[in-house]
Design a protein around this nucleic acid. Sequence first.
DNA 1: CTCTTGATTGTTCTT
DNA 2: AAGAACAATCAAGAG
Length: 101
Amino acid sequence: MPKAATKRGGKAEKKRAKKDPNAPKRGLSAYMFFANEQRENVREENPGISFGQVGKTLGERWKALNEKQRLPYEAKAATDKKRYEDEKAAYNAAPDDDDSA
DNA sequence: CTCTTGATTGTTCTT
DNA sequence: AAGAACAATCAAGAG
């Protein structure tokens, strides 16, 4: 095993309570932006499909795209990530408010 | 330093 | 309202 085996073979876990004080939520993922655009397209090509089908079709198409196709999505993901960086920055720079310091 | 895990993000549909 | 498959992610913690 070259690296982390990661038991990512199952399914997503449930949500968990935040442990950080200001919990700097991460930015969105390329998939988020991709879904935003494709969700309409997918539903258009698959009229009347269940959520399960949409979700799966979405994922399959996601990988079906080329790197350049994901570019616009990854680009947005990076842009949103920057948003997160700002939070993280403040989160690290502001463990607790206190002007005096 | 390097790996592991946990937490998070948004969509859609169902109940 | 919230949960669940779908994929990415990436930052912090632990050794």
